[in-house]
Design a protein around this nucleic acid. Structure first.
Length: 270
DNA sequence: CTGGGGACGGGGCCC
DNA sequence: CGGGCCCCGTCCCCA
């Protein structure tokens, strides 16, 4: 049984889904060009075997950080103190760059005073500063005084890691690595040769071959191979469904149905 | 045309 | 840091 099924909140302010770019990456890398002659065969008992094509991982070097251009930064009169306005600010990831963006210390500043970019407090030791930082619940934003930026707005919010295969940018190496898997598609189905970015995607795909349906509906006899599909199915049991038309208050089990509804007769503007 | 199922992808979080 | 998992979402197809 699923452990934490449908327990989270439903909010739909996520970023729009860019299907086109996905299709682009898919068609660029997949199955048609897969060397089927070299596919693992039945004697390979592991259906989940992945075949990493690691040369792409050589591309994971972080992009060089150019000097911060304050003009390109989001204008924030409050500077780094404005924590509430941008909870997902990527400035916390700046420690990823390992100080790449820091200037060499000025020779006339020999003392090590550590400065918090959030609240401007200064500390004589890094440990004291670290302790202080816990109050901000943010990774290290604080720099020694000799690296103190001239303007508080110079906290970089730029992603530092660029994908070599597409224009996407990420502010952590892990996120970039995860993304690059969608280009390299290292997990290959031994049955049909279709390639996937992650092992659990392959696992789900393999269920389409085996017919396994581990996600059962508790309201009816249906079962599903995919948890998302069960979630959508459960909406059909609900009287008030998740997606509601703004005009006629009709509810739908799926966003796509609501879109269709909007595109048809009802409330074309909503 | 509408509702629903199937298949799949991405980001985020946790371990 | 990487793997596994979860949730959210889309597109396609069919009844």
């Amino acid at each position: 049984m699923p452990r934490s099924f449908l327990v989270k909140k439903y909010f739909s302010n996520k970023k729009p889904y860019h299907r086109e770019s996905q299709l682009e990456s898919q068609t660029a890398f997949v199955p048609e060009s897969f060397p089927r002659a070299e596919l693992p065969t039945q004697n390979n008992s592991s259906a989940l075997t992945c075949y990493p094509s690691n040369p792409f991982y050589m591309d994971l070097l972080p992009a060089p950080i150019s000097p911060v251009d304050p003009v390109s930064l989001p204008s924030s009169p409050l500077g780094p103190l404005d924590l509430s306005s941008s909870p997902s600010s990527s400035s916390g990831e700046e420690e990823e760059d390992g100080g790449r963006s820091s200037d060499p210390p000025s020779p006339d500043v020999l003392q090590s005073v550590y400065y918090c970019l959030h609240c401007s407090k200064s500390y004589s030791s890094l440990s004291a500063l670290s302790h202080h930082q816990t109050s901000h619940k943010q990774p290290s934003h604080c720099v020694p005084l000799h690296q103190k930026p001239a303007l508080p707005t110079e906290v970089s919010t730029r992603p530092a890691f660029h994908c070599k295969h597409c224009p996407k940018e990420y502010n952590s190496l892990g996120a970039l690595k995860m993304h690059i898997r969608s280009h390299t598609l290292p997990c290959v189905c031994p049955t049909c040769g279709k390639a996937f970015s992650r092992p659990w995607l392959l696992r789900g795909h393999i269920r389409t071959h085996t017919g396994e349906r581990p996600f059962a509906c508790q309201h009816c006899n249906r079962a599903f191979a995919d948890r998302s599909n069960l979630r959508a199915h459960l909406q059909t049991h609900s009287e008030v469904k998740k997606y509601q038309c703004g005009s006629c208050s009709r509810t739908f089990s799926r966003m796509s149905l609501l879109h269709k509804h909007n595109l048809s007769r009802c409330c074309p503007a909503s």
